[in-house]
Amino acid sequence: MQYDVITYGEKALLLRFKNEISLEVHHQVKSCYHYLKNNHIKGVVSLIPAYNSLTVLFDPDKIEGKTLKVFLENTPFQVSDEVVQAQKTVEIPVCYEEAFALDLQEVSEKLNVSIQEIIDIHTAQPYLVYMLGFAPGFMYLGGLDQRLHMPRKATPRLRIPAGAVGLADQQTGVYPLETPGGWQIIGQTPLELFSKEQPALVAMGDLVQFVPITEKEFYKIKKS
């Protein structure tokens, strides 16, 4: 496994992998992340796995940065089938009906793909959660079909509702909280991706399968 361990301020080290977004690198990051999470290294207080990096935050009162660096450089991290297969598939119901699909008509016209086809393509296969970040519970999903690659809106919306499902270039994702944003909104999930009781529905490395639902079903799930 190829990575560098570099200084990242006084309380963190950064494991930097190959400069690309790929399944191979994802599995390497995931392997290191799982290893450090499961082995409770003294002084390591938090981890931020990303596409091709792993930030390791530590408490300098408990472990010296130098010591941790040597440890990280010399730990024989390995990508195992166990780690690769450690993933759950989470179904996320999405209502693509007009009331929630603010930009679906426009996306359909621009991409020259019918609304039904967009829904079919968007729900055809599960997406890999490469990482979480940007906002509480926000998933960076990989594997969006090329036919749905759509640029962001020229002017971001000031308010996008929590649960909105959108497209932006090669990405698709769900807004966990009401925020401003520039994604093209094609639907909305009634699920809470983030709540006080549960920090996120999914973990890095999981799969997300969008499942189309009707407006009626949306409100039924929302109520329960």
Binding site: Y8, G9, K11, A12, L14, N19, E20, I21, I48, A50, Y51, N52, S53, L54, T55, L57, M131, G133, F134, Y140
Partner: peptide, 10 residues
């Protein structure tokens, strides 16, 4: 860069 972790003071 490809999105990566942020720590306080970056």
């Amino acid at each position: 860069i490809i999105s990566s972790g942020i720590v306080k003071g970056t």
